[in-house]
Amino acid sequence: MKWSEICIHTTNEAVEPISNILHETGASGLVIEEPLELVNMEDTPFGEIYELDPNDFPDEGVRIKAYLPMNSFLGETVAEIKQAINNLLVYDIDIGQNHVTLSEVHEEEWATAWKKYYKPAKISEKITITPTWEQYTPVDSDEIIIELDPGMAFGTGTHPTTVLSVQALEAYLKEGDTVIDVGSGSGILSIASVLLGASEVHAFDLDDIAIKSTTINAKINKVDNKIIAKQNNLLDQVNKKVNIIVSNILAEIIVRFVDEAWDNLEDGGLFITSGIIQGKKQLVFDRLKESGFEILAINEMEDWISIIAKKTL
């Protein structure tokens, strides 16, 4: 079978929504190329292990690549993708150059092209993420290894929004805590929570493929007995009292369920939010304060923000 590689030159802010658009239209093998990845490779306190070619990365902005089957519907699918991306302007999302190109690839290239970007990476003091097909030997005795198979549909766990979330969990999660993961994706935050000591995690995602991916990766890491993955729209109809709610999702989505997060947290519980672009920091900050949360910390990485808030009465 022949495949078409779609490449979209856009901005960091648009990565999450465009990735979701590609996923919803049936694209596979998502790859994100951004020049800051090369900076991370050379300047990091955690020593990520990357094998990256600078020629694969844009001078500015971000390139998102994915693969579509070459069939009679390809033209319609590409048109649908372009329209959906243009519609992001309605939500005040900067889509940058929004230059879209197509190129033909063969099946064997499609099956392996995206994997070359995914190598073991130490993303916090304790946690290293490694793909299931890579051999990795721990460097430290207390190193926590998360094996991840993104299923060709979700991130590899090294994006700044995920790194900020994991680092916050490592800093604040206590042994025996209960956790809700809103928008679980591949399940990395749910898995990290258990490996850091959580007794139980409820993982929610609107996408049933995400729930399957969370379940598969939980089994790979032998933590499926502590992770309950369920399809759900944010925290709609959820009534659980937990110690931590973590959500790596768009700022515009976070502000929609702040009150529900408050209701599902124990007194003194923490709401860890990530996926927030610099320009939307105040939006989330103000919404959290409005609902009564105390802001404990605001952490930054590249153009991204993570906010840790506490439920205080």
Rank of each mutant, 00 (worst) to 15 (best):
E294C: 08
G268K: 11
V246A: 09
I272C: 15
S247H: 03
I276N: 01
A251V: 12
I244K: 04
I307K: 07
A261G: 03
E266N: 06
L296I: 09
E300I: 05
M301C: 06
V255F: 03
G269H: 00
D259G: 13
Q282S: 14
S291W: 10
I305A: 11
G275I: 00
F271R: 02
D259E: 12
K289R: 14
I308E: 12
E290D: 00
I272A: 15
D303H: 08
I245W: 03
S274G: 06
F293T: 02
I245H: 06
E300T: 14
A251K: 03
I272S: 08
V255E: 03
M301T: 10
D303P: 10
L270K: 09
F293M: 03
I298M: 14
I298Y: 13
G269V: 01
I298E: 12
G268L: 09
I249P: 00
R287M: 03
L250F: 01
R256V: 13
I254S: 06
E300M: 08
I254W: 06
I307V: 15
W304V: 12
I253F: 02
F271V: 04
D303G: 15
F271G: 13
F257K: 01
F285P: 00
A309H: 14
F285T: 10
I298L: 14
I249H: 11
F257Q: 08
K280T: 05
F293Y: 13
D267C: 12
S306L: 13
I249M: 13
F293R: 02
G292R: 04
I277T: 12
A309W: 14
I276H: 09
F271H: 07
E302Y: 12
S274K: 00
I307H: 12
G279A: 07
E294A: 09
E300Q: 15
N264H: 03
F293S: 02
W262T: 12
E302Q: 09
I276V: 09
I295F: 13
L283P: 02
G292A: 10
I245F: 05
I308P: 09
G292M: 04
L288V: 13
K280G: 11
D286T: 06
L288Q: 05
V284Y: 06
R256W: 07
I272M: 09
L265N: 07
I298T: 08
E294H: 13
L283D: 01
L250N: 00
